[in-house]
Simulated scan of single mutants.
Amino acid sequence: MASTSSREVAHNGLWKNNPALVQLLGLCPLLAVTGSVVNALGLGLATMLVLAGSNTVVSMIRNHVSEAVKIPAFVMIIATFTTCTELLMQAFTYELYTILGIFIPLIVTNCMILGRAEAFACKNPVAISLFDGLMMGGGFGLVLLLIGAIREILGSGTLFADMHLLFGPIAENWTLHLFGEGYGFLIAVLPPGAFLVAGMLIALKNIIDDRVEKRQAARREPVTTGTKRVRTTGVIS
C-alpha cells in the first residue's frame, strides 16, 4: 500500500468525501438512532465492520466475478457480513441490539457500503480496500458519534449514559451529568433535532472547506511589492 494512496484514502473517508457530510448517505439511521452516544457508537461500529469486511471480500473476488452477476454477488457479501454482525450483537450486546432494532439489518441497504464495493473495492487490491472500508466506516461513525454526543448533551444534559449496554458492567459509572437533575430539551432528542444538528455540521464543514480553499488560493497568488522596471538586453520587464 503506497503511503500517498493511504493518505488520500484516509482524507477522503474522514473528511473530503465523508459519507455522511458530503455524500449524504445513510441518513436514515444517522438521524434515527443518534439520540445518545451509545446508540451512535453501536451503529457506527456495526457499519464499519460490515463495510471493512465486504470491501475485503469484494476485492479478493474482483477478478473472478463477471459483470453480469457482480452486483448480486456484492449484495450477498454485504448481507452475509450484516447477518454476522447482527448475530454478534445479539450474543454480546443484546439490549443495545433491541434498541437499535431494524437499523442493524438495514445496513444491507446502506448505499454507502454497496457504493464503496462498486466504486473502490472491485478495482483495488485487498489491503487498500480494507483500509478504505475502515476509513469510510470510521468517517461515518465519527459523524454519528458527534451528532449523538450533541443531541445527548442538549436533550438530556448527560454524556456517555448507558454505555454499559456496549461495554458491560465496567462502563456503568461513565455517565456525566452536565446540567444537573431535571434538565431536558425535548427537541434535541426528537427527529427535528437530528436534522438541525446534522445540518449545522454540514454547514460547518462547508465553511471550513471554503476558508481552507481561500487560504490556499491566496498562497498561490504571486506577491507583488511594487512595480520594478529592469532593462536587460533590450527587454523591459
Rank of each mutant, 00 (worst) to 15 (best):
R62D: 11
R62P: 07
N63A: 13
N63S: 15
H64T: 05
V65T: 11
V65S: 07
V65F: 11
E67C: 07
E67I: 07
A68K: 09
A68G: 06
V69Y: 13
K70S: 14
K70A: 13
K70D: 05
I71H: 07
I71K: 10
P72S: 06
P72Q: 03
P72L: 09
A73I: 11
F74I: 15
F74L: 15
V75A: 14
M76E: 05
A79G: 11
A79F: 02
F81T: 01
F81L: 11
T83C: 11
T83G: 03
T83D: 07
C84P: 01
C84M: 14
T85N: 12
T85E: 14
L88M: 15
M89R: 06
M89A: 15
M89D: 12
A91V: 01
F92A: 13
F92N: 06
F92Y: 10
F92R: 14
T93C: 09
Y94V: 02
Y94W: 13
Y94R: 08
E95T: 12
E95V: 01
E95K: 13
E95Y: 00
L96S: 06
L96F: 03
Y97V: 07
I99M: 13
L100N: 02
G101A: 07
G101D: 08
I104Q: 09
I104H: 06
P105G: 08
I107Q: 04
V108T: 14
T109M: 06
T109W: 02
N110E: 01
N110K: 03
C111N: 04
C111R: 02
C111M: 12
M112A: 11
I113M: 04
I113E: 00
I113H: 00
L114D: 00
G115L: 04
G115S: 08
G115H: 01
R116S: 04
R116F: 00
R116T: 02
A119Q: 06
F120M: 11
F120I: 12
A121F: 12
C122M: 15
C122W: 03
C122T: 09
K123V: 12
N124Q: 15
P125N: 15
P125D: 15
P125S: 15
V126C: 11
V126Q: 14
V126H: 13
A127P: 03
A127V: 09
I128L: 12
S129Y: 04
L130C: 11
L130T: 10
L130S: 06
F131A: 13
D132L: 04
D132F: 00
G133H: 07
G133A: 05
G133F: 09
G133Y: 07
L134Y: 05
L134N: 10
L134T: 01
M135D: 04
M135L: 12
M136D: 01
M136N: 01
G137C: 07
G138K: 11
G138T: 01
G139C: 08
G139Y: 00
G139M: 00
F140I: 04
F140L: 07
G141T: 05
G141M: 09
L142M: 14
L144T: 10
L144E: 08
L145W: 07
I147A: 03
G148T: 03
A149Y: 02
